[in-house]
């Protein structure tokens, strides 16, 4: 019997939908020992290797919320304050992220402008909004678009590593354009906040457990147990 690739999960689900959680088992991530879930859902340690073992990532939602909110706050100074300081012939000039994007648009370098716009503005905003949406869907147990949400989350995780583009550019320019009086480029305060935004969104993506998306919409005893 061949199972079509697209329907594999459906085919599996149509059978006995058994998860570890449903079976009351969890896996030690270090030594791969299967451990029974504790009754009260309190944190446990692997009896074999003493690693922390949890059914789902501990306090995943809380952590993710905190990090997402942090990044949301930092997003404002990161975009409003100047990120780069250019000293050209003794004249200082500050530019924010948007200044740079506008500059490139005006210059006609639309490609570069779009890249910067995407990497520096859209991606962080998209990440924050995406994670928040996933979190809200868990919170309110929205059952639609589960798979799409998961795919979106994977994309957020994937793109996270590219959001430091601006910082890389500034770091490069700082190193390359250093001609003393004639012209110098250095990072300004917004760079720190921008780093904060990127780091906290990446951490938020890491701390989030995607299985919770599914947990939220599959009512089971175990879920109830966890929710106790």
């Amino acid at each position: 019997m061949t199972i079509p690739r697209d329907n594999a999960w459906c085919e599996i689900n149509t059978g006995k939908p058994i998860t570890g959680k449903d079976a009351g088992l969890m896996l030690c991530h270090d030594c791969r020992k299967v451990i029974p879930c504790p009754e009260d859902g309190s944190p446990v340690k692997c009896p074999r290797c003493c690693a922390s073992v949890h059914l789902r990532k501990a306090d995943s939602v809380t952590y993710t919320w905190a990090l997402v909110i942090t990044s949301l706050i930092l997003l404002f100074p990161a975009n409003l304050l100047p990120i780069m300081q250019v000293d050209y012939m003794g004249v200082q000039d500050y530019s924010t992220i948007m200044d740079g994007i506008i500059y490139f648009f005006k210059e006609g370098s639309y490609g570069i402008a779009i890249v910067i716009l995407t990497a520096s503005v859209l991606v962080p905003v998209f990440k924050i909004l995406g994670i928040m949406m996933v979190l809200l869907s868990i919170h309110f147990r929205w059952e639609s678009w589960l798979r799409h949400k998961t795919i979106m989350f994977r994309f957020i995780e994937f793109i996270g590593r590219w959001s430091m583009l601006d910082i890389f550019v500034i770091a490069l320019l700082t190193a390359l354009v250093n001609f003393g009086f004639f012209s110098t480029i250095s990072a300004a305060s917004a760079a720190t906040y921008f780093c904060g935004v990127v780091i906290s969104t990446m951490l938020a993506a890491i701390t989030f457990d995607t299985r919770l998306i599914w947990d939220a919409c599959i009512p089971s005893e175990n879920t109830k147990v966890r929710n106790k």
Partner: peptide, 30 residues
Amino acid sequence: MEKPITKKKRGISPIWILPIVALAIGLWLL
């Protein structure tokens, strides 16, 4: 089956310090 070692859960997660710090910075900047 061996019983996992259980640990008592603490109160509010310390991760909330981060958004508070960020908020503080934001407010100060504001």
